[in-house]
Structure formats: C-alpha cells, structure tokens
Lab assay of single mutants.
Amino acid sequence: SIKEIEKEEIIKVLKEVNFNKKLASEILGIPLRTLYKRLKEYGI
C-alpha cells in the first residue's frame, strides 16, 4: 500500500540522516510538522 511505501521511505531517510528530523523532512520534501504527524500515525 502507499502508506507502507511512505513509512519505509521515512524510515530509510531517517536512518540516512541519523534521525535528524529537520533534515529528513527537507529531503522528503514535506514540512517538519507533517513528518511528526506521519511518525505518530505510523508509530515510528
């Protein structure tokens, strides 16, 4: 599903940037606030 793909992509990017959420949100092209929402939604 799209949610699974998105979750995997978020985890992959977070690992690449050593869990720097600000940098991860910039790489993913989403606002930091949205990233936090996704992390909560996906239980990351």
Rank of each mutant, 00 (worst) to 15 (best):
K15P: 01
K40T: 09
A24H: 00
G29L: 05
E9S: 13
K12L: 08
N20D: 14
L28Q: 01
L14K: 00
G29A: 07
I5F: 13
P31C: 04
E6V: 08
L39S: 02
G29V: 03
S25N: 01
G29N: 10
A24L: 03
E16I: 11
K3R: 12
E26N: 09
E6H: 10
L14H: 01
K21M: 12
E4N: 10
R38N: 07
G29F: 03
S25I: 03
G29W: 02
G43T: 05
L35W: 01
R38W: 15
L35M: 04
K22C: 05
K3H: 12
G29D: 06
V13N: 01
I11F: 09
L28D: 00
E41F: 07
A24F: 01
E8D: 12
I27P: 00
S25E: 01
I11L: 14
L14F: 05
Y36K: 15
G43E: 09
E4T: 08
V17I: 05
P31I: 02
I5C: 04
L23R: 13
Y42I: 10
G43L: 07
K22Q: 13
S1D: 13
G43N: 11
I10C: 02
N20R: 05
S1A: 14
E9R: 15
N18Q: 10
L28K: 00
V13Q: 03
N18P: 02
T34Q: 13
L35C: 01
K21F: 12
K22F: 10
N20E: 04
E16Q: 15
I44P: 04
L32Y: 06
I30Y: 04
K7T: 07
K21S: 08
F19L: 04
L32T: 04
N20V: 06
K37F: 07
E6K: 09
L39I: 14
G43V: 05
K40F: 11
E41D: 09
I10S: 02
E41A: 08
E26I: 14
I27M: 11
N18S: 10
Y36R: 13
I11R: 07
L35D: 00
K7Q: 07
I11K: 07
E16F: 12
N18F: 09
T34K: 09
E4V: 11
R33M: 11
S25F: 01
K7N: 06
I10G: 00
K15L: 13
I10V: 08
S1W: 07
L28W: 01
K12Y: 07
I10M: 11
Y42W: 14
E6R: 09
E4K: 08
K37N: 11
E9Q: 15
E16R: 12
K7F: 09
N18V: 04
E8P: 04
R38E: 05
E9W: 15
R33K: 15
K40N: 09
I2K: 07
F19G: 14
Y42H: 08
K40Q: 13
L14E: 00
N20L: 03
I44T: 05
N20I: 05
E9C: 06
I2P: 13
P31V: 03
T34M: 11
E9D: 10
L23F: 07
I11M: 13
I5D: 12
E9Y: 14
G29Y: 02
S25W: 01
I44R: 05
L23M: 12
S25T: 04
E6L: 10
S1M: 08
L35P: 00
V13R: 03
E9H: 14
E41V: 05
I5G: 12
E16T: 11
E4G: 09
P31L: 04
I5M: 15
I44Q: 05
V17C: 03
I5K: 15
E9I: 14
Y36D: 12
L23V: 09
E26W: 08
Y42V: 05
E9T: 14
G43H: 09
G29T: 03
K40H: 14
E8Y: 13
I11N: 04
K21D: 04
Y36A: 11
A24K: 00
L39C: 05
I2V: 14
E8T: 10
E26M: 12
E9A: 15
L23I: 09
E4P: 09
S1G: 14
E26Q: 14
L14Y: 06
K37D: 15
K22P: 08
L14C: 03
E6N: 11
I5W: 14
L32S: 03
K22E: 09
E26Y: 10
K21E: 06
I30E: 01
L35N: 00
I2T: 14
K22S: 08
F19V: 01
E6D: 11
R38L: 15
L28E: 00
Y36S: 09
G29K: 09
I44G: 05
S1Q: 13
K40A: 11
P31Y: 02
V13A: 09
K37R: 12
I30A: 01
I2G: 13
L14R: 00
V17D: 00
E9G: 10
K15G: 08
K3M: 12
I5V: 12
S25Q: 02
S25P: 00
L14T: 02
S1F: 04
S25K: 02
E6W: 07
E16V: 09
I5H: 14
I5T: 14
E8Q: 14
I5R: 14
L23P: 01
N20A: 04
K22L: 12
V17A: 11
T34V: 14
K7G: 06
K7E: 05
V17H: 07
E4I: 09
I27L: 12
N20K: 04
A24R: 00
K21G: 08
K40I: 13
K7M: 14
I30G: 00
L35Q: 00
L28S: 01
I11P: 01
V17L: 07
R33I: 11
I30R: 01
V17K: 03
K40G: 06
Y36W: 09
E41N: 05
R38T: 10
V17P: 00
I30Q: 01
L28I: 05
A24T: 06
I11T: 07
L35V: 02
R33L: 14
E41R: 06
I30W: 08
R33N: 13
N20T: 02
K21I: 14
A24G: 03
K21T: 13
I2E: 14
Y42P: 02
I11V: 10
L32G: 02
K12F: 07
F19W: 15
E6T: 13
E26C: 04
S1Y: 03
I44K: 06
